[in-house]
């Protein structure tokens, strides 16, 4: 009932696009996926809760320092309900989450929601910026490699990709800092300017971290896309049809094969966004970016359970949303999915 009502109201508003989207099978499917994600998200919070509580240290002693007396620790614990049984605390937390309240940090009077609200944009920008760099470099490079498989470009890109996949980000980060920050002073070594404060300043501080995050991705996605393109060019019949039309190899690559290969690439990116978000932790640590990963490291060492829980939940939701976005984009890129689902 409610869905049909909303569809009607949308259609009355006159937006044909919104109407199509609301009735679209891709969205319905995504709704199902969203539902199936709930037990997974719940498992993620439970796992992190149990893990943090298994830590030998506790928040009280971690926050008060080693000079705190047992009495101080006890009163602090009572104030923060740390003395209550594990399941009671988890129940409280979960009840809070379900009513939209992520709780308050143990280390500061700030609410977890406001901490995440401050930190999340930094991490998101980092991830998006890195993905943009990756695409801008990987796609043309993969096309060049696939145009002449095992040619000079392909072979050198293979070596570079292998190196970029194998290089540890902390090593890469250090060396980029030496070159770009210390030697040439093009980018700052650490520090952060928010996008709101100054766009140029923001790009200035975010470029180097994004490159560090992007380089292994570039290596991997270039190889993946290249392999898929070569496979398409060698074994797909529609490529032969295009050749028989007299279409040039370049055009077949960029107009025919690339479109099809993007579908596979997208799936891989969607599947691995979780690990990418996890990877921001190290980059943020190296460049002292006040992102969510930086905060997470602090929270873990402070045993600040509500903050860790909140961040883990955000990570989990990000993964679910990424999969969802992949699904929707998939439908846009692959007409078969769009229509087959529409029929069923």
């Amino acid at each position: 009932m409610s869905t049909s009502a909303s569809v009607q109201s949308v259609s009355r508003s006159g937006s044909a696009f919104a109407r199509r989207l609301a009735g679209s099978p891709a969205l319905r499917l995504s709704g199902r996926r969203l539902l199936s994600a709930i037990p997974v998200l719940w498992g993620v919070t439970l796992l992190s809760f149990l893990m943090l509580n298994a830590l030998p240290g506790d928040a009280a002693s971690a926050l008060l320092g080693i000079n705190a007396t047992p009495a101080e620790i006890r009163s602090f614990s009572i104030k923060l309900h740390l003395n209550e049984p594990l399941w009671t605390r988890y129940g409280h937390w979960l009840a809070g989450v379900l009513t939209g309240n992520l709780g308050t940090s143990l280390a500061s009077p700030q609410s977890v929601a406001s901490i995440i609200g401050q930190r999340l944009p930094v991490t998101l920008e980092l991830v998006i910026y890195a993905l943009i760099i990756t695409f801008v470099v990987s796609v043309p490079l993969a096309v060049l490699c696939a145009r002449w498989p095992r040619g000079v470009i392909d072979q050198s890109s293979l070596v570079l990709s292998m190196a970029s996949i194998s290089v540890a980000p902390y090593v890469l980060g250090l060396f980029l800092v030496i070159l770009f920050a210390v030697h040439w002073s093009i980018f700052p070594a650490i520090g952060y300017t928010s996008l709101g404060a100054s766009v140029a300043g923001n790009l200035h501080t975010m470029t180097l971290p994004s490159i560090v995050l992007a380089i292994p991705l570039i290596g991997f996605y270039t190889r993946f896309l290249r392999a898929d393109l070569v496979e398409q060019m060698q074994s797909e019949d529609y490529v032969v049809t295009a050749r028989a039309k007299g279409v040039s190899e370049w055009r077949i690559l960029t107009r025919h094969a690339l479109r099809n290969s993007f579908i596979g690439l997208l799936t891989v990116i969607g599947l691995n966004l979780a690990t990418l978000i996890g990877a921001t932790v190290i980059v943020e640590e190296i460049f002292s970016l006040p992102g969510i990963g930086f905060e997470l490291l602090n929270a873990i060492s402070n045993r600040d359970v509500p903050v860790v829980e909140g961040i883990v939940l955000v990570f989990g939701i990000a993964v679910v949303l990424a999969n969802l976005a992949t699904d929707l984009l998939y439908g846009v890129l692959d007409p078969r999915i769009r229509h087959v689902r529409a029929r069923s």
Partner: peptide, 10 residues
Amino acid sequence: AFPSLVLVLA
């Protein structure tokens, strides 16, 4: 769904 690095760190 759990960021692997978080798990490893914890």
